[in-house]
């Protein structure tokens, strides 16, 4: 019984949150890695682009709520995602046309691209703050929990309960659906194969008749979908605050590089690697251990490897270690 309790404590406080957080990071990381693979630069506007898409979802959610539209137990935001995605893609294409395409045609070095993306980051951040402001916003409605700890305890008679927030379940399910469709598209369709070919060997792709403009367009479309969904899921689970989104860029980069930059499947797994590492290293194991050890051996301290203040630092350290030991990432991306 104690063993079961211990497992449930661990599950409730680490596995579930890590799965949800990991899914959010994974979507962002695939976004980063796709841009890197096809357009060949590290996009420093990643966090703010995710924020930009989410902003539309937030605004539309408020609007729909005022009209009385909704999905009942599900959050209204889910209804707004398609519209937000459209706005996001439109914005990305405008930015691409007026900013990035010039450097692509000139075949500028990646460093210059990265600096240009810093410019885009500033502009996007300004637009977001001017349109919606910098404050913290919650836009979750509908049923908040799928399983509550108290109900779980009553049901099973255990001392520990499992809480499953609806946002966590939605995050994990939506991520799995989106990512499966994306991998199906990349690996099984002609267009997807042509994208991978373009990313692998641009000159030969051109000689095979692949239209670079189309590849770039589709890349931005997929990027817009991933960025918006990733951003909205994060915002539903936590809350929407532009500054936090900017900061999220950092663990997302870490996930993309840990997974092997340019490799979408690696980025997907990288998201979970980072999330689990952050949570396992900063979780206080006291309660977990106290179920497993006899009473007189119970520990006094929290049994926490690092305080939760260092959550980000953990993922960055993992990145540094990966860069040192295996610069192409755990799952082998482009050679550095």
């Amino acid at each position: 019984m104690d063993f079961l309790n211990a497992i449930i404590v661990l599950f409730n406080f680490t596995v579930i949150p890590a799965l949800a957080y990991g899914s959010q990071l994974a979507l962002g990381a695939i976004f980063v890695t796709l841009i890197y693979a096809v357009l060949r630069f590290a996009n420093f506007a990643t966090g703010d682009m995710m924020s930009f898409g989410t902003m539309f979802a937030v605004i539309l959610t408020y609007y729909f709520q005022s009209l009385g539209f909704g999905l009942g137990v599900l959050p209204t935001a889910l209804l707004t995602i398609p519209f937000a995605i459209l706005m996001m893609i439109l914005y990305m294409l405008i930015i691409d046309k007026f900013v990035f395409s010039y450097y692509r045609i000139k075949k500028s070095p990646p460093v210059q691209f990265a600096m240009v993306s810093v410019g885009v980051m500033f502009v996007t951040q300004a637009l977001i703050r001017i349109i919606i402001g910098p404050s913290d916003r919650r836009f979750l409605d509908g049923e908040k929990f799928i399983i509550k700890a108290t109900e779980f305890k009553e049901m099973t008679g255990l001392a520990e309960g499992i809480t499953l927030k609806s946002t966590q379940a939605i995050t994990i399910i939506v991520t799995l659906i989106v990512v499966s469709i994306m991998f199906w598209f990349l690996n099984r369709t002609k267009t997807g194969t042509s994208m991978r070919a373009y990313s692998d060997n641009e000159d030969l792709a051109l000689l095979s008749g692949i239209d670079p403009k189309r590849v770039v367009l589709i890349t931005w479309v997929i990027a817009g979908i991933l960025a918006t969904i990733g951003g909205v899921l994060y915002g539903l689970d936590k809350s929407y605050r532009p500054f936090v989104y900017f900061n999220n860029m950092l663990p997302i980069f870490a996930a993309a590089i840990v997974g092997g930059i340019g490799n979408p499947f690696g980025a997907f797994l990288g998201g979970y690697v980072i999330a689990f590492a952050e949570i396992f290293v900063t979780y206080a194991y006291k309660r977990f251990i106290s179920y497993l050890l006899p009473e007189h051996l119970e520990p006094d301290s929290l049994l926490q490897l690092l305080s939760t203040d260092y959550k980000f630092a953990v993922s960055f350290s993992i990145l540094v270690i990966v860069l040192l030991i295996r610069p192409s990432g755990i799952f082998k991306g482009k050679v550095i």
């Binding site: 002609k190 194969t193 042509s194 991978r196 070919a197 990313s199 692998d200 060997n201 030969l204 792709a205 095979s208 008749g209 692949i210």
Partner: peptide, 17 residues
């Protein structure tokens, strides 16, 4: 060649048009 793609995918890209 497209080193990251399979043999068959290389051929498919060859016949892209």
């Amino acid at each position: 060649v497209f080193a990251e793609l399979t043999v068959r995918e290389n051929l498919e890209i060859g016949g892209f048009l």
